[in-house]
């Protein structure tokens, strides 16, 4: 990612250049949606979370610290929104259970390979802390240090969570015969 160019886009946004924000939305729409989807396991919730994440990013651009990479900042917003959404789900478990199995758009049904579906099921089975590091490491290609920055936790904790998460996922996926 061209961070200089990105910083320039952010500066233009801060000055009220809506087109610059459109460019950022175009650049990050897919990764942010995928972060949300892997955290939530639900296509429509992921779209909602992505929308709110961009809205919050837009609104808080004045507080963005250019010392950090823009994607770290917006990933953090998206992760926090997804966690909020998961907490809302917990408060309405019955509704959640009723909606999760069936809600796939036709497009997703076509694209969702068995691997993706099994992987997602296993991901949803592990605690949010573990899922988050897996999503950032393996779906967003973030380094330990980037994950540390995004989640505001020490690198040592990132590694510890990542190793435990992999162990848990390995066991779950072995049960499904995927590994």
């Amino acid at each position: 990612m061209d961070t200089d160019n990105e910083l320039e886009l952010v500066r233009r946004c801060q000055k009220g250049d809506g087109h610059a924000f459109e460019v950022l939305v175009g650049r990050y729409e897919k990764p942010i949606f995928n972060v949300a989807f892997r955290m939530l396991g639900n296509y429509d919730d992921a779209a909602d979370v992505a929308q709110v994440a961009f809205m919050k990013a837009f609104e808080n651009l004045a507080r963005y610290n250019p010392a950090y990479k823009f994607y770290s900042w917006i990933y953090r917003i998206a992760i926090n929104e997804a966690i909020d959404q998961l907490n809302r789900r917990k408060r309405n478990t019955e509704l959640d259970e009723a909606r999760l199995p069936d809600w796939h758009t036709p497009e997703q049904a076509v694209r969702d390979t068995q691997l993706s579906a099994v992987m997602q099921e296993a991901l949803m089975d592990v605690k949010t802390d573990y899922r988050t590091v897996i999503v950032l490491k393996h779906f967003m290609d973030c380094s330990y240090e980037e994950i540390s920055g995004i989640l505001d936790i020490p690198v040592k904790t990132v590694k510890s969570r990542l190793f435990t998460a992999r162990q848990l996922l390995k066991d779950r996926l072995a049960d499904t015969g995927l590994l």
Binding site: P31, F33, A47, D112, H138, F139, L169, L173, L178, L179
Partner: peptide, 16 residues
């Protein structure tokens, strides 16, 4: 290692 390879095989979804 197989787990890590499995992650790589999962394709990103297109947003709505």
């Amino acid at each position: 290692q197989k787990l890590a390879e499995s992650f790589e095989k999962v394709q990103p979804l297109d947003p709505p």
